[in-house]
Amino acid sequence: MNTDEDPNDVGHFLRAIGEVRRLEHDQADVRAPAPIARAQKRREDDVAVLRDLLSDPVNATDLQPGDELRFVRPGVSRRVFRNLKRGHYRVQEELDLHGLFSGEARRAVATFLTEARCEGHLCVRVVHGKGLRSRQQGPVLKGLLDHWLRQRDDVLAFCSARPADGGTGAVYVLLRRAAARS
Rank of each mutant, 00 (worst) to 15 (best):
A116C: 14
D26E: 15
F71I: 00
P35D: 02
G120C: 01
L84H: 03
Q137S: 15
V140L: 12
R79E: 13
R42C: 05
G66H: 15
V72S: 15
H12I: 00
S77D: 09
L156C: 14
A161T: 01
K41T: 10
S55Y: 04
R21V: 14
G18C: 10
F81W: 03
V171W: 05
R90F: 10
R38Q: 11
E24C: 01
C118H: 13
C123R: 00
V173S: 01
E19G: 00
E104Y: 05
V47H: 03
T61R: 14
E68F: 12
G18R: 05
E115H: 13
L174C: 02
R15N: 11
R152E: 15
I36K: 06
V49I: 09
Q40W: 08
L149P: 01
R82T: 10
V127F: 08
G66M: 14
L174R: 07
D4V: 04
D29R: 07
Q151L: 08
K41D: 11
A39R: 12
R51I: 06
A179H: 08
R181V: 15
L54D: 00
I17G: 01
D26L: 09
R42Y: 13
R106Y: 02
D62N: 03
V155G: 08
A180V: 10
A178K: 10
D165M: 05
P65E: 00
R133E: 12
Q151R: 14
D146L: 00
G138I: 15
L63I: 01
R107I: 10
D4R: 07
A178W: 05
V30Q: 04
R86I: 01
G129R: 04
L95D: 02
D153A: 15
G18N: 08
D52G: 13
A105W: 03
R162W: 12
V49K: 09
F81A: 12
R31P: 02
